[in-house]
Design a binder for these strands. Sequence first.
DNA 1: TACTTTTATGTAGGTACCTTCTAAAAGTAA
DNA 2: TTACTTTTAGAAGGTACCTACATAAAAGTA
Lengths: 135, 135
Amino acid sequence: MADADIAEYQSKTLSNYLQAGNLMAVDCPSREVLKHLTSRWGVLVLIALQSGMHRYSDLRRKIGGVSERMLIQTLQWLEQDGMVRREALPVVPPHVEYSLTPMGEEAAEKVRALADWIEIKFPYIAAAQMQRKAG
Amino acid sequence: MADADIAEYQSKTLSNYLQAGNLMAVDCPSREVLKHLTSRWGVLVLIALQSGMHRYSDLRRKIGGVSERMLIQTLQWLEQDGMVRREALPVVPPHVEYSLTPMGEEAAEKVRALADWIEIKFPYIAAAQMQRKAG
DNA sequence: TACTTTTATGTAGGTACCTTCTAAAAGTAA
DNA sequence: TTACTTTTAGAAGGTACCTACATAAAAGTA
């Protein structure tokens, strides 16, 4: 932990951490969490992990089009936010298991509700888009 | 409507539009919709409009930190996707009213469920972040 | 020695989001 | 005439996401 982090940590009282976030406020740090959970790949990682533990390469296969770099990046964001648990087995070649924490399960449910809705409603959305272009 | 759009439109049969989206697929156009709904300002616009019609400047005031450019941009995405209805009154200075379509109401509910969850859980998330940095 | 495997990291470069500034429109008020 | 109103567009420039490619480690096999 860097000195700057320690200073920042100690400057905040417990009550600061008990306050709910306010996403409408300009500088509320909860916006960072929103950004991670709703990021291009964050959504898909959460949904993919809902069906249980996955290895890194499993996720890469499952989530079409994600690059190695961004998958790692996204997993690290979600791990840092306490949504994803990372377990590295001390073997060669490396074997790393990713799974959702209890908090991650809750987040994944919310995100999946939106994703499912989009998938089901997509025909209507596409139709609306066409109508608008044609109109 | 441009010729290219007409050609694209006619190349698709009705059944194409009745297929549900698949967000895990690389090139499924539903991913664009997901991107709009979960974009940095898209989430906040949907939630803000849940309490009814807002003028452009109302939204700008309500959503902390959004720039004029991005608010317009986001509203146009959501309008194009059929989530937001835009009504311009023919007066000077301009008076434009934005509101959710029925489909937008549904999307907003899903998005708000996630946002509410983040705001409530934020103290725990922040604590998790700190633990990780300190660990 | 060369090659394999899996999970990362580093870098170079592109793209798209995003902010800021400027400007337009046509009325009203000073 | 000048300033001010509200909504939107355009341009310039910054930043962060994102892709692609190269590199690394570690221990086993051909």
